[in-house]
Amino acid sequence: MKNYKPNTSGDVRAKKHLGQHFLKDENIASKIADTLSYSGYYKVLEIGPGMGVLTKYLLEKDAEIHVIEIDRESVEFLESNYLHLRDRIHEKDFLKVDLQSLFGAEEFAIIGNFPYNISTQIVFKVLQHRDQIPEFSGMFQKEVAKRICEKEGSKAYGILSVLTQAFYTAEYLFTVPPSVFSPPPKVDSGVLRLQRKENFHLACDEKLFYRVVKTSFNQRRKTLRNSLKSLNLPGNLREDIIFDKRPEQLGFQQFIDLTKMIEPYAVSSK
């Protein structure tokens, strides 16, 4: 592998409080590296590289690879073993970092074997910065990956499904068993890919859209007529047939349409 120096400094200890499960299967690492298109952008950010099993396959791609890692021991390992990467190793917390401080206004893709305990927060941050992130792929707990990609009508379908699919095309790619990690997690993992919908404009107030989706699913067993009571909508509006449905019955476009209906009567939290 180019830009890779064999490990001479010992393994990094997986830390439970960071949710670390280090990928050890080279074939899976190679498959994950291949999930991005590397097209339309030049820079790629890997979140949580650990000991760089995925990193070395990313470094073979025609892209400028950056990694962001909060664990000092992992950073030291990467600095010792990936010498040509040293200037692009960012010892920071992805959830707290200002992405423009890393890339300015440039577009970049994100990839990684994401810690389960912050994976949904990572997706929400990607949605906030979608103007800069055309593509995103990586490994999640299988249940979470399936939920992100799930379509309406399923019990797994929820807030994360709707909000992600409004802006990205979501695709579940393959399942990964616990045995390919050290230490092995107690559940299967799943790899997904998100590709941004180009020239897409959310035809409603975005903050109100988020509010409607989250409020609807907070009482997902109830009809929208009941779950959206807190919005204090007029009775004649709430007689519309869409309010007879439960939230999991609506696709993201129907939630956009619902938000447009509500917009003249609800105050968005701008």
Results as ranks from 00 to 15, higher is better:
D93H: 12
D87I: 00
F200A: 14
E107A: 05
D71K: 10
F114E: 05
Q249Y: 13
A170L: 11
Y265E: 14
V75W: 12
V97F: 03
P177E: 06
K186T: 11
Q141Y: 08
T175W: 09
I148E: 12
S30I: 08
L83S: 14
G40L: 06
Q253L: 10
G158L: 08
R147D: 13
L250Y: 10
K151Y: 09
V144M: 12
M261E: 14
L85A: 00
G190T: 10
L258A: 10
L85W: 13
K16A: 10
I122T: 00
D25V: 06
R147E: 14
S269T: 15
H129T: 00
L78F: 14
D240S: 10
A156I: 07
S269L: 13
I70L: 15
S230M: 14
G251A: 08
F217P: 01
L78Q: 02
K96C: 13
P185I: 02
D71F: 13
V123G: 03
H17G: 00
G138D: 14
S269K: 09
P6T: 11
V162T: 05
L208V: 05
K2H: 11
K125A: 04
I70P: 04
K142R: 14
K16P: 11
S37H: 08
S154G: 09
R246D: 12
P49H: 02
L18G: 11
F124E: 05
Y82E: 01
Q121S: 13
D93S: 09
K229G: 08
F103A: 01
L59W: 01
N218R: 12
L59K: 01
S39I: 04
Q132S: 13
P183H: 09
K146E: 15
I65D: 00
F209E: 05
Q141L: 02
H84M: 13
Y210V: 03
L58Y: 07
N81F: 07
S227F: 14
A166M: 10
E239K: 14
R211I: 04
L228H: 15
D93M: 14
K5W: 03
D71V: 11
L45C: 00
L54W: 05
I118P: 10
Q195K: 15
K15R: 15
P247C: 10
T164Q: 07
Q249F: 07
A145L: 03
S227T: 08
H84A: 15
K260G: 04
K125M: 03
R246F: 06
G235I: 04
G10K: 05
G10R: 05
T164C: 09
A63T: 00
K197N: 11
E79V: 04
A166R: 01
K15P: 09
I68T: 00
K2G: 04
N226M: 12
Y157C: 04
I47A: 09
L83H: 10
E91P: 09
K31G: 05
L163M: 15
T8W: 11
L18P: 02
K260L: 03
E143K: 15
Q20D: 06
F255P: 01
D62I: 00
I89E: 05
L45Y: 01
K270V: 11
Y42V: 01
L208Q: 11
R238C: 14
C204N: 04
I28E: 01
Y157G: 04
L231N: 11
K142C: 04
K61W: 03
C149G: 03
F209Y: 15
E26V: 08
L231K: 06
P264M: 07
A33H: 02
I47Q: 07
E106M: 03
T259A: 07
Q195T: 15
L83C: 11
V144E: 02
